[in-house]
C-alpha cells in the first residue's frame, strides 16, 4: 500500500512539476472558466433573473461553466504524454493503477484550483449565496470527484485516438449528463437551504462516483495497456 502511494505520488508530483513549468492545462482551464464567467455575468448579470428562478438557474449556470472548463483541460495530462512521446516509457515503467491514481490526483488538483478561483468569483459576480454552505461544499467536493474520475477515464481513451480535442467532449458529456443533473439539483437545494434535497443529490452523486471509480480500477489497465 505504501509502495503504491509512493509510486502514484511520483506520477502526481511529476505531472504537477511539468505543469508548473509549462502551465498549459491550468491556463486552458482557468482562462476558459474566467472567460465564460465574464460572458455569463455580462450578458445575464445578477439581477436579470427572476427571484424565484435564481436558485435553479444560477446553480445550472455554475455547473455548466465548470463542466465546459474541465472539457478544456482535464484531458491534458494524458494527451501530453502521447504528444511528447513519453507515454510508451511510462507504460513500460509504471503499473497501470499507479498511473491511474497519479493522473486522477492531478486532475483533482486541477479541478480544486479551478473551483477555488471560480466559485467565489461566481458568487460575487452573480450574487449567488447558498443558504447551506456546508451542503454546497459537499456537492462541490463530491461532484468534482465524480467529474474528475469520469474524465480521467475518457481522457485515457481519447489520448490514443485521432481528432482528440473534439472527441474528448463528445465522449465525456453524455457520460456526465446524469452527474450534471444531480449536482445542479443538489446545488439548488443548497441554495434554497433544503438539507433533504442536498442529501438526496449527494447520495446519487456519490453512488455514481463510486461506480465510476470501481469501473475505472477494473477497466483502466485494459485501456492503458492497449
Amino acid at each position: 500500500m505504501w509502495r503504491f502511494l509512493a509510486e502514484a505520488g511520483a506520477v502526481f508530483v511529476k505531472d504537477l512539476r511539468t505543469e508548473f513549468r509549462t502551465r498549459v492545462a491550468l491556463n486552458a482551464l482557468g482562462l476558459f472558466a474566467v472567460t465564460t464567467l465574464a460572458a455569463v455575468s455580462y450578458t445575464i448579470g445578477p439581477y436579470r433573473i427572476a427571484e424565484a428562478d435564481r436558485p435553479f438557474l444560477l446553480s445550472a449556470l455554475l455547473w455548466i461553466v465548470i463542466f465546459f472548463a474541465s472539457m478544456a483541460g482535464l484531458d491534458r495530462s494524458f494527451v501530453k504524454e502521447e504528444d511528447t512521446q513519453t507515454a510508451p516509457l511510462l507504460r513500460l515503467s509504471a503499473s497501470p493503477l499507479v498511473v491511474w491514481a497519479g493522473k486522477l490526483a492531478f486532475n483533482l488538483a486541477l479541478l480544486a484550483v479551478l473551483m477555488a478561483i471560480l466559485v467565489p468569483l461566481y458568487g460575487m459576480l452573480m450574487g449567488f449565496r447558498p443558504v447551506s454552505l456546508w451542503g454546497f461544499a459537499g456537492i462541490l467536493a463530491a461532484g468534482g470527484y465524480t467529474l474528475a474520475v469520469t474524465t480521467t477515464m475518457v481522457a485515457a481513451i481519447i489520448a490514443r485516438a485521432m481528432t482528440r480535442g473534439a472527441l474528448f467532449s463528445v465522449l465525456s458529456l453524455p457520460l456526465l449528463l446524469p452527474l450534471l443533473i444531480f449536482v445542479i439539483q443538489g446545488t439548488r437545494a443548497a441554495a434554497e437551504g433544503s438539507p433533504e434535497g442536498v442529501m438526496e443529490a449527494l447520495r446519487a452523486v456519490i453512488s455514481l462516483g463510486g461506480i465510476m471509480t470501481i469501473l475505472s480500477v477494473v477497466l483502466f489497465p485494459a485501456v492503458w495497456h492497449e
Binding site: 475518457v154 481513451i157 490514443r160 453524455p174 465510476m212 469501473l215 477497466l219 485501456v223
Partner: peptide
Amino acid sequence: RRATMAAVYSVLAFVTVPFL
C-alpha cells in the same frame, strides 16, 4: 486498439444508462 477502447466505452456508457 479500436476494439478495446470501444469495448471500454461501451461498458462505461451502459453503466450511466440506468441513471438516465
